[in-house]
Amino acid sequence: MESLDIAGHLDNWSVSIQLDKKEAARSIYEELNKHTDDYDAETLVTYLLLESRYYAIQRDFQESKHSLVKAREYDGNFTELQKYQLFFAEGIIYYFEKQYQDALVCLEKAEKYVSPSMEPAKIGEFHLIKAMVYYFLDITTLSAVHAARAVENFKSLEPLNFLLARTELVQGMNYLDMSDYELAEEHLHRALSTCKRIENQSLLASTNLNLGLLYVTRGLPATAIRYLEDALAGKQERIELNVLYLLADSYWKTNQATKAKQAYSEGFQKSLDNDDTKMKWEFAMLHKKYEDRHNFESVWQEGIDYFQKVNDKFNVRLFSKELAQYYTDSKQYELATKYYLLALI
């Protein structure tokens, strides 16, 4: 293959990957992969960084990381932009693996190479991903700062509706964390309108889940159910267990026990099938809260022990606070103190 052909193939590959055309991308990959021995170092770095993205769009994160490891062998030849691409790609992979602290470390490295000469859309996307990572690290203020910077870069670009809707979601969820429900509602409904307009089913399901979460948090389970049922109808496997959990909770709160038990059974069984121990405990604890009250204390204590063991501090805080309130109400002050302390970790 002539060098011009390689460059042309790499360009076509990049476009196929960006447009999520997996079949076209696979066909070009198979062609390019036969000639890697002929590439000079610069071409090889470009190839490996694209290969990482190629595997990422197929959700094969292990291979995606492997490509980045191979690219790192040539990091002496990296341009500034390639250094940015490497760290940003690592950050995104860690985000989807829910390793948020590692994702943040990579994004901080990438940020050193963010330059004003980059396209506003790319700068905006960087800040959006960083805002998403901060949200899951429970650092609301910095998530809000980066979401605002993302909006600044997106607002003048008409075709970036998807990115704007995704940013609206982050802003809405940050306002929810800050208990500013009116602004949370405003942002989430704006995202919902955009998702419907651009017919993005995946983001639409996520938006319905987030609206359901907002109304559950506000103590409006009947309203939450409408959005959670829509989220479930979106058939997005990634969020299905979270939707079923919130749905079961909302059905129980609105005295629809049959539907609640159905949602609980489906969620509990799927968490067993997926070997998702964390969600299994969450479903079990939810069930004991509403149905099997005489086992409530023991199962919640065991569940909190499990969350402590796996260092899931978010759930330790969440469930300990509720259990402590239960012990306070039943005048078991020693146990109440124990769980209030755990809620503070």
């Binding site: 990957i17 960006q18 993205r53 990422a56 769009i57 959700r59 995104i92 989807f96 829910k98 390793q99 948020y100 602290q101 590692d102 994702a103 943040l104 996307e125 959006l128 998403m132 949200y135 899951f136 690290l137 429970d138 650092i139 998807f162 990115l163 995704r166 979601l169 982050v170 969820m173 929810l176 993005n200 995946s202 983001l203 996520s206 889940l209 987030n210 979460l213 997005q236 990634r238 969020i239 979270n242 959990y245 919130l246 964390k278 260092n311 899931d312 501090k313 978010f314 759930n315």
Partner: peptide
């Protein structure tokens, strides 16, 4: 925040890898 960097929030921002 969390030693493992894992906060189990129930919110979600979609599945797109590269926006």
């Amino acid at each position: 925040s969390n030693q493992d960097g894992l906060a189990d929030k129930k919110g979600d921002f979609g599945s797109a890898i590269l926006s």
